[in-house]
Nucleic acid binder design. Structure first.
Lengths: 303, 303
DNA sequence: CCCAATTACGCAGTGCGTAATCATC
DNA sequence: GATGATTACGCACTGCGTAATTGGG
């Protein structure tokens, strides 16, 4: 058995050299154009011809000319190379976060406040990135982030979550959402609060905000009546308007007006929000969003 | 200035490795599938990611998973690789003379005889090859072959031509094409022939066949009247039917019947044909035609 | 401790440049 | 002799395999 010289692996350079030679009609000129010696062109094209099983050039004195096979291969090679360049361009754009996709976990209300501002700004600068919002509770968010099902989640509270990095971002005051017939002390009337019952979403029974309020009231010697409801955030608002109780909301949600509803701040009570993300997640669009969030948090905090 | 490690040139292997890893969801499995070590896969994909400027896989314990960029690049890579394979296939088919193009120079009549048989057989076996016929005189054919404008030319005579290889193929008897009123001696009546005038195409004044006949007649002490006409081969036939003279044809043309026309062989006079081609011409379809021609000549000669 | 990916290291193979050679005008 | 492609040779470098390392259940 003959030890057939192992076929050289086809390289994109083969195509580049070939196209240059085809364009210039001369190995020499092609070599100058590419910045390489003629011998390289010659050998690479010989490799290419060997591998393809057809000669691509007719060599005559004064240069080379494409054979029939060469003419045919030229188009193909151009297409392949162009396609490859496009692909690299495409993927590179993802790498530079010019396009892409982010899965983002958000708390119930993103219509106003820090997050609304963040995503508005982000969209302005990275319109090509599709943002997939996922509304859920903190625990589920943390798990998704750790599993890389979500790229980043914005949640209330500062606690650690396994497999998640935590980046503190901003703080919001807590508000009581109530009917507008209730008196409006600057400092909330605790007695009044305890008389009413608090409507909370069943899924958020152990949320940071509720925990904080309960702690605060019990520390002050007051009781509190919680009334979990299996409804969404929007419906809670309606329930309040129906005089079925009060609702606890953060500052972002308090900026949204609704007929028959007013918001009263709970002085001294605040809720801090942070971003959860995974160190293993290299999604450049996510990292840029995170950077932007930090920058935004810094801006709005320092003044 | 930092000595930035020169970027590794993208290779089709990069794509193959990447696709294998994407398919198997594991560098390890991809490595076995391809028949290479994991480290190779790992490094090559890292190169690819560096070059593209985006990470393609999320590494988690138990394997890898495509990122958004990776998913996108996967389609592209498949297309590029497939396109490249198709191209190689295509060009390879040309190399194996399954498809292609041949420029063939032919004498005025190819409707019958050796060439007709040759092309009929060739078409049967290589239907994908397009044959470009070019009808011209020997000198022009030889020049075209040397310039590689023609791949091969079949011409009468055996003489050498610059830049051409010569391959003797077959021999044909010469015939006189005449009106059917002329007597039909087995051996042509030389007196009769000299009495008539020979119609020849002006372009073929110095053709091998005419030269041979003139030589023969003058050697035998006879004169000959040549009457060049600026018409094509077909028209000559009509002129003979109009009793304007005789015409000299080779055996192939003599097998085509025409009303009012008969052919008489010139005993002892024969014309040999050969193929002209260039040693520099690697056109595989041409070389296969040539091989087939030799084989055919051998077959029809030996019995 | 296992699985899977990554990194360190040494060796073989490949590609390039230099330079000589061939071929044609 | 000039131009242009091909070939011989030596060197640097890349890429692979082996094996050690990291990292997460």
């Amino acid at each position: 058995m003959e030890t057939a010289r192992r076929a050289p692996v086809l390289d994109f350079r083969h195509l580049r050299y070939f196209l240059a030679a085809a364009e210039h009609g001369s190995f020499r000129k092609a070599a100058v154009a590419i910045g390489v010696r003629e011998s390289s062109i010659s050998r690479r094209i010989r490799d290419l011809e060997d591998q393809l099983g057809a000669s691509l050039f007719q060599r005559h004195n004064g240069g080379v000319r494409l054979t029939f096979a060469g003419q045919r291969f030229r188009r193909r090679a151009e297409e392949v190379l162009q396609h490859m360049r496009d692909s690299a361009q495409d993927v590179g754009a993802i790498g530079r976060a010019e396009i892409g996709r982010i899965g983002v976990g958000v708390p119930p209300s993103v219509a106003a406040g820090f997050l609304a501002e963040l995503f508005r700004t982000y969209d302005q600068h990275h319109g090509g990135v599709h943002i997939d919002f996922q509304e859920s509770e903190t625990t589920a968010h943390a798990a998704s982030v750790a599993r890389l099902d979500l790229d980043v989640a914005f949640v209330a509270g500062q606690r650690q979550w396994p497999g998640c990095e935590v980046t503190s971002l901003w703080t919001e005051r807590l508000f009581v959402r109530c009917q507008n017939i209730i008196a409006s002390p600057t400092d909330p009337n605790w007695t009044l609060l305890t008389a009413e019952c608090f409507l909370i979403r069943r899924a958020a029974t152990s949320s940071e905000a509720v925990d904080a309020l309960v702690r605060r009231l019990t520390d002050a010697g007051h009781g509190i009546r919680l009334q979990p409801q299996g409804v969404g955030h929007d419906s809670l608002l309606t329930l309040v308007a129906m005089e079925r109780g009060l609702a606890l909301v953060c500052e972002a949600a308090a900026s949204i007006p609704f007929p028959g509803i007013v918001y009263r701040p709970i002085v001294g009570e605040a809720l801090s929000f942070c971003a959860l993300w995974s160190a293993k997640n290299g999604n450049p669009a996510m990292r840029r969003l995170l950077r932007m969030a930090r920058s935004l948090a810094h801006c709005s905090r320092s003044p």
